[in-house]
Amino acid sequence: MDSAAASFYLCGMSDTDGRRWHDMGGRDAGPVPKGEHDFALWEKRVDALMMLCSGKGFFTVDGLRRALEDMGEDAFETMTYYERWMAAVNQNLVEQGVYTLEELGTRMEEIAQRGDSYGEAQDG
């Protein structure tokens, strides 16, 4: 630890170059994984909701990216692509007042009662 870092450490301060986790160009990384999958119906629906709601002006792709970036690196590592996109779409819809957290939470509870699988729960 150099002296500047040591003094930050001693007084509990931190510093950063401002680079954010998603800004990946040029970082060290291993081989590119080549496995591929098609998408499940629920993932295609997330994609469709994203395209439809952005097309209708409820948010922009930048609003989605901002939400994805703000979810942090943990989300990138632990959630699938469309799980993160669902979270980002939802974040933007809530921010735009399209529905409330109460409406969402209540409905998600109802859906849990419909069955144990997506197939059983997907239609109200």
Partner: peptide, 16 residues
């Protein structure tokens, strides 16, 4: 897909 256990994010998609 449809026959795997229902997840939080899937419930969110259905609800939204």
């Amino acid at each position: 897909d449809n026959d795997a256990p229902l997840t939080y994010w899937q419930r969110m998609e259905i609800a939204a």
